[in-house]
């Protein structure tokens, strides 16, 4: 009896471990099929590409959020860091006239720096990430607004515009960037010490520390990485709307958290895979797109997205509790 039990475990491990993600994937497929029947436009190459483009920013932010949440934390400052990096970059590039590539570099540095500062405070002062990033959320946006004095910048150079609107063999640049981000994230989580430590800290911080892991270093890296992805998103947004503003990105952190949750990552840390988050972001993108095509009012859309978030996590929880 013991042997058959063990055998069964072995065969089922893949499905057992990725159950949530597999069902999210199936849900995504079903959703696409339904929308194909309900609307004429959904299943067209042009629309599908546009779903990907619309999902790219949230996907990228959610990838960073996945690291944070796996490590047992949360980052509420994501939207604000996006605004900080995009607004200052736009001002420097358009109003001061610096080289656009230098501007992009500055956006990335701003993202990493604000993330690192938060990580440092979380790790060294030992304040819950919720509080630190809640504070960060208003501080970063405050700095951004103050810096540009609340005004917007229009008309960006071509290099930036290309990143937002250009394409390679038909694939929009932001989608390509998102794909790279996901490959890199997968690699980091699965193939590096940093990734393993991220899971370890979220799974059991004490045991991780007693294994000689420097918790502070890993935490600072995690929040910096999340900040870096905010910087990248800031650049892409600027390119796409051909403008920068200190008020973009409001609520982006919540979309990112939602994608992570739908993707099956445990909110208490230690568990999750990056592809789940990608699926989560795509589910949200497809639903938004479908509702737009069906001309559902934005108010209803909010309600529906909310139901999907709670529903997806509930189904998962109910199934787990049954066991």
């Amino acid at each position: 009896m013991e042997n058959t039990k063990l055998l069964k475990l072995k065969n089922n491990r893949f499905f057992e471990s990725y159950k949530t993600q597999i069902s999210t994937f199936i849900a995504l497929i079903i959703l696409c099929i339904i929308l194909t029947f309900l609307t004429d436009k959904f299943f067209t190459g042009k629309n599908l590409i546009s779903v990907l483009r619309q999902s790219s920013i949230n996907s990228i932010l959610a990838a960073g959020m996945t690291f944070v949440i796996i490590s047992g934390g949360i980052d509420l400052s994501v939207g604000a860091i996006v605004a900080l990096s995009t607004a200052i970059m736009g001002d420097l590039v358009v109003n001061t006239g610096i080289n656009p590539f230098l501007g992009m570099f500055i956006a990335l540095v701003l993202g990493v720096a604000s993330g690192a500062i938060q990580g440092l405070i979380i790790a060294k002062v030992k304040i819950p990430p919720f509080i630190v990033t809640l504070g960060g959320m208003t501080i970063w946006r405050g700095i951004a607004l103050e810096y540009v004095d609340g005004s917007n910048v229009y008309g960006l150079p071509d290099q930036l515009k290309w990143l937002g609107g250009g394409d390679v063999f038909g694939l929009p640049a932001p989608v390509l960037v998102a794909m790279l981000v996901y490959l890199a994230s997968w690699f980091l989580l699965k193939k590096t010490k940093f990734g393993t430590y991220t899971y370890a800290i979220g799974g059991n911080e004490v045991a991780a520390r007693l294994s000689g892991i420097s918790i502070a270093k890993v935490q600072i890296l995690i929040y910096s990485f999340c900040g870096l992805l905010c910087g990248i998103s800031g650049i892409l947004i600027a390119g796409r709307i051909n403008a920068t503003s200190a008020v973009v990105g409001t609520g982006y952190e919540l979309d990112a958290i939602a994608a992570v949750a739908i993707g099956g990552t445990s909110m208490s840390g230690g568990k999750g895979i990056i592809w789940g988050t990608l699926l989560g972001a795509l589910v949200m993108g497809v639903i938004r797109n479908g509702l737009n095509l069906m001309r559902v009012s934005p108010y209803y859309q909010q309600i529906i997205i909310g139901i999907v978030i709670v529903g997806a996590v509930s189904i998962d929880a109910i199934r787990r509790n049954k066991k």
């Binding site: 193939k191 590096t192 010490k193 940093f194 393993t196 430590y197 899971y199 370890a200 799974g203 059991n204 004490v206 045991a207 991780a208 007693l210 294994s211 000689g212 892991i213 230690g270 568990k271």
Partner: peptide, 29 residues
């Protein structure tokens, strides 16, 4: 449970947890 092992991680990761440096080239495992 509380201090010894990361319960929700795999056995192989727990075994290598304190000596990842030895099985890595720089940051890569």
């Amino acid at each position: 449970k509380l201090e010894g092992l990361v319960q929700i991680l795999e056995i192989d990761k727990n075994i290598n947890m304190a000596s990842l440096d030895k099985v890595s080239n720089g940051p890569f495992i």
